[in-house]
Design a protein around this nucleic acid. Structure first.
Length: 548
RNA sequence: GGCCUUGUGGUCAAGCGGUUAAGACGGAGCCCUCUCAAGGCUCAAUCCCGGGUUCGAUUCCCGGCAGGGUCACCA
């Protein structure tokens, strides 16, 4: 068969360059030894989730700790999946979590000399190489229809055979020249398939940077490399792009492991050296007693938007991910509490091999801790950012008074004390937490543990003594005085010695006052809260509490 | 089902031939204390099972079992 003629018939494009030309256009990158070039290559659905962030973080850290490049390539070979504005959305979402690209699609960078970074715009490169493969007899046209393919697959399944287009099932592999040209003349649509040279009898061991040594079975499937619309499949585009964009390390989900044999063969027939690979394990969750991969349809917590909306501190999400990415990260952080996470020596070899369960408790803990390190001003900015985007009108009105909010924050966070408090876990919860500082949001839940007479007596005794000018000590002395006046123990030790002699202790008196002022039995230092609220509101709340 | 892959406390996990089998989150308790939070201390809790190899296996080998992934003109 005249494959050269066939190639021209199949791919008559006139804009294809000689193959060596592409090598010249995209020369090896001039980077220092050990520098890794990594990439994130999403399809433009606009939905990037925790799993994407997880691997993007690994890509970004590795590139930037080795002095390499992290770029963004858009895999838009499937027209059906395209969503408007998706690329900007990917960039924006990742930027929120401090993951930034050095080059690539929609990235304004002088480094952008390996583009275009949209696969659809790279059609000529793929087609040039597909044409070459056809000329070399390593690829051929296939006219099988979807129905025919499905029928074969059903047969194979019924006979417990391996499904797919291979060996005797690769019927178009043996088409005669006449048949091919007849089909072409009839205008039948066709795809280009790789004429696989492999055999499943052959096994080889492959070294994955994360998984270690894995055994792979040689590919024998005549996979589609060019779809009927002339656009490549993922496999073909991957081999060509990662070669010409000079990727040194491909980090991708472990769901790709099973198509690794195809990629190995593709790199081989194309004559490209293979990049290193690291297949990451996926984030799991427990569902109905068993583990399963986090799913974008079932699990809202997979969406990055979920974390923004709930007001998680972005650095906390990143650090949580770092703890599962490199399990020695936590230890390092404890030793270097002041250091930025980017100073951590991230290594791909430390990455876990098995799927980690997503642990919300852990995230919450990290988030609380991160947030507790902020200054009142920083906390205001963070909370306010959330309020402006997701808060209610009332929240926005409250946050208009920066000084007032910051004074509350200083108390809630324990700023100035020996140890910071960790009350604020995320913005949404933090904003709700301080609601009682605003009269319009004050919704007391007055569950008294004493009868009305006692409550009223305690409150009125305190109201009579209350002086806003008192410092903490003077204030507490008065609480003790109120306790003594009303049959409560002023000293805890007295109460503990013989509880039967008292109605309760100072702690109970403080609780009554606390409920009156904050509407809750628990809060940070009451004296300070009263100071922030001011005399008038304190008196009003005490009065209101007595009414019922 | 075939192929690939994983298996240390509830979770994330160190350890990889001899250890009292780290640590963190979560849980329980104690202390501190006007409550809560924070903090300090303490406790409970683990090597999937069965065979080997070995003086000795959580660590090595084999076989089970269980989990996960994948079998498209989607990526």
């Amino acid at each position: 068969m005249d494959t050269k003629k066939l190639a021209s018939a199949l791919i008559p494009d006139t804009d294809l360059l000689p193959l060596e030309e592409y090598e010249r256009m995209y020369p090896p990158r001039d980077l220092k030894k050990g520098a890794e070039v990594t990439r994130l290559a999403p399809s433009p659905t606009g939905f990037i989730h925790l799993g994407n962030l997880y691997s993007a973080l690994a890509d970004e850290r590795i590139a930037h700790t080795t002095g390499g490049i992290f770029y963004l390539r858009i895999e838009d070979t499937d027209e059906k999946r395209r969503v408007e504005g998706a690329v900007e959305s990917v960039i924006r979402s990742l930027k929120y979590f401090n993951v930034n690209f050095d080059e690539g699609a929609e990235i304004d960078s002088p480094l952008n000399s390996y583009g275009p970074y949209y696969q659809r715009r790279r059609a000529a490169i793929y087609r040039a190489f597909a044409k070459d493969l056809i000329e070399r007899g390593l690829a051929y046209p296939c006219f099988c229809t979807e129905d025919e393919l499905n029928k074969v697959r059903e047969e194979q399944t019924a006979n417990k055979l391996i499904t797919g287009y291979y060996g005797e099932y690769a019927v178009c592999r043996n088409l005669t020249e006449e048949q091919i040209y007849a089909n072409l003349a009839a205008g039948k649509p066709f795809v280009i398939r790789l004429k696989s040279q492999g055999s499943t009898q052959n096994k080889l061991t492959f070294r994955d940077r994360i998984k270690g040594e894995i055994t792979v079975t040689e590919n024998d499937q005549d996979v589609v490399i060019l779809k009927s619309d002339g656009i490549p499949t993922y496999h073909f585009a991957h081999a060509i792009d990662d070669h010409f964009m000079r990727t040194t390390l491909v980090i991708r989900g472990e769901e790709w492991l099973s198509s690794l044999p195809v990629h190995i063969e593709l790199f081989k027939v194309l004559g490209f050296p293979m990049p290193a690979y690291g297949h990451t394990c996926s984030l799991m969750k427990v569902d109905g007693g068993t583990k399963r991969k986090l799913s974008k349809r079932k699990d809202p917590e997979l969406s990055l938007d979920y974390y923004r909306r709930a007001g998680y501190y972005p650095v906390a999400v990143v650090k949580y991910l770092m703890t599962i990415l490199n399990s020695n990260f936590e230890e390092w952080e404890r030793k270097n509490p002041e250091a930025d996470y980017t100073q951590f020596k991230f290594t791909i070899e430390k990455m876990g091999k098995s799927g980690a369960l997503f642990d919300l408790d852990k995230l919450n803990d990290i988030s609380k801790t991160e947030l507790s390190k902020l200054s009142a001003a920083q906390m205001y900015d963070f909370l306010n950012g959330w309020v402006q985007e997701f808060g209610t009108d009332s929240d926005r009105a409250h946050f208009a008074d920066r000084a007032y909010i910051e004074s509350i924050l200083a108390l809630i966070m324990g700023i100035g004390g020996k140890k910071r408090r960790k009350d604020i876990e995320r913005a949404e919860q933090g904003v709700r937490l301080i609601a009682y500082f605003f009269d319009d949001a004050f919704a007391p839940d007055r569950s008294w543990r004493f009868d009305a007479d006692t409550v009223n007596a305690v409150i009125s005794s305190f109201a009579a003594l209350y002086d806003p000018a008192d410092d903490n000590q003077a204030w507490f002395a008065k609480v003790k005085e109120v306790a003594a006046q009303n049959g409560f123990a002023a000293e805890m030790s007295d109460y503990k010695a013989d509880p039967s002699k008292f109605k309760g202790s100072v702690a109970d008196v403080a609780e009554i006052l606390r409920i009156a002022i904050t509407g809750m039995p628990n809060s940070p230092d009451l004296c300070t809260i009263m100071g922030i609220l001011g005399r008038d509101r304190c008196l009003a709340r005490m009065n209101a509490a007595m009414l019922n």
